[in-house]
Computed example of a mutant assay.
Amino acid sequence: MTIQQLQGLIAAPFTPMHKDGSLNLSLIPSYYEMLKVNRVNGAFICGSTGEGVSLTLKEKKAVAEAWAACTKSDNDFIVMPLLGGTCLADCKELALHAREIGLNAVSFTAPFYFKPANVEMLAQCCQEVASVVPDMPFYYYHIPVLTGVDFPMYDLLKAINGRIPNFAGIKYTHEDFMDFLSCIHFQNGKYDMLWGRDENMLPALSLGAKAAVGSTFNYAAPLYYNLIDAFNSGDLTKAQSLQQQSIDMIRLLGKYGGIATGKAYMKLIGLDCGEFRLPVKNMSADNFELFKKEVGQLEFSNFCSRNPVAANTI
């Protein structure tokens, strides 16, 4: 199996919900079209942004099937589900389902209740799940701020190298640039290292990152492509300014409650994905009006993603 290293921006989509908290799968084709218009190269579904840990096994399959249906004829758009991490049997079932419906790759994160005691145990978990889909690229999702599993990924690559043939790389959502660079250089760049911290894209580019997976690419993809272009052309002053715009936008996530604020940004580009499920706190109507004013002060309309099927509300 040839593993193709990914390029550019890959969005981590929100899972659309109705007002009653049920899945709104009918929105996914429009979601996909919006990402394509904004040059996004793929979707990392059912991850942190997609509330994968709050979805049932049946719901995860339904979301995957909806994305598979609308992207099946698009060979240039990658769809990769996060399988989970806590129940390995469920992860294996979801991996087999992803292969059955024609998705491009799968991803797995560390068990975060009964945590692996060391890197070798984490490698065994990866091997067990990856082995059921030996013909699919398998990525590990490193997000220690949520899993509490914080082994150096360089050590994981050493542990899995040569024993998991379909291990493609790592979605790296952490700030350890020393470890990230060592992973990029491991075995002369053998593994695909996908950057996962949107607010730190510029330093990741300077280390050699070629692809990134992020939630803010859903609603601000043009900003990041402009940042990448500025970096590639050697205009570091412009690249730094654009990264600061990203940081200013992301700061509002924290100010207005965290991850659910991302769905408020989606409303502003005309794609209402509903609310997050408990225990995530959603934004009140009053706070949404305050949020809109602050977003306007950022001149968000100058760099936000364009939605071809609905008018932006900013």
Rank of each mutant, 00 (worst) to 15 (best):
F217I: 08
I228H: 12
P165N: 06
A98G: 01
A260H: 10
L207P: 06
K238R: 15
C126H: 12
H174D: 14
S131T: 04
V145R: 15
V106W: 09
F291G: 00
N287V: 01
A12R: 02
E100L: 01
T71C: 01
V119T: 15
Y265D: 02
G208K: 11
G50D: 06
C46E: 05
I164F: 08
M80T: 10
F177Y: 03
E100T: 00
P16Q: 11
R163G: 00
D179S: 06
P16K: 05
D248I: 02
V129W: 12
N302T: 13
I45L: 08
F300P: 00
T86S: 09
K255T: 13
G169M: 08
S215R: 05
R306H: 12
M201W: 07
A64Q: 14
L236D: 05
G148P: 12
A130T: 01
D74H: 02
K190L: 05
P29Y: 12
T2F: 10
V149F: 03
T216N: 11
I269V: 15
F14V: 15
T147L: 02
S305V: 12
T49V: 15
C125Y: 13
Y113E: 07
K92A: 00
A209H: 03
Y139C: 03
C91M: 03
E175I: 02
L103Y: 05
N232H: 14
E33Q: 14
S301C: 11
L96S: 10
N226R: 14
G270K: 00
F151R: 09
G214H: 09
E275K: 13
A105D: 09
C70N: 02
M193D: 04
Y113G: 06
L242I: 13
Y225S: 10
G254Q: 02
R39Y: 10
G234M: 08
D192I: 10
V119M: 07
M80N: 01
I45Y: 05
T86W: 06
Y32T: 14
F108D: 03
